[in-house]
């Protein structure tokens, strides 16, 4: 498994916020969802996932609650807060602007 393969620095938080947009998820599911959504291209290590989640909690962009999962397991689910939603929007816009700019440079030659 490629380590943290392909994740641009600073985008992990954005990815997490994005997968939480569909609804609350627990830690393992977040990692899985990113993995799947990226067509197995991106693998999130626990060592990055949990510090990133803590940072999001600290910023107040997500909230965490204990629930029982589908597999009848006690898990902690993270859900997006309104400010998290706002952050996601601005983060996505920022990301798009940035990639377009990089793309312009890379493909313009």
């Amino acid at each position: 498994m490629p380590r943290e393969a392909g994740i641009l620095p600073g985008t992990l938080g954005l990815l997490i916020l994005r997968v939480l947009q569909q609804g609350p998820l627990h830690g393992y599911a977040i990692a899985q969802r990113i993995h799947v959504l990226s067509c197995d291209e991106l693998a999130i290590e626990e060592g990055s996932l949990y510090p990133a989640l803590q940072r999001l909690l600290l910023k107040g962009w997500v909230k965490a609650d204990w629930t029982i999962s589908d597999t009848n397991r006690k898990v902690r689910e993270y859900r997006l807060t309104p400010s998290g939603r706002k952050e996601l929007e601005s983060g996505c816009a920022e990301y798009r602007r940035l990639t377009r700019a990089i793309g312009d440079v890379l493909e313009g030659i």
């Binding site: 627990h26 626990e46 060592g47 949990y50 597999t71 397991r73 902690r76």
Partner: peptide, 24 residues
Amino acid sequence: EMEAHRAQMPDSRSFGSTLRLRED
């Protein structure tokens, strides 16, 4: 939470030291 995560993983050994992760 980390224990739960580990239990759901197909290969639970690849999960690092929970203590270390927790500190980080």
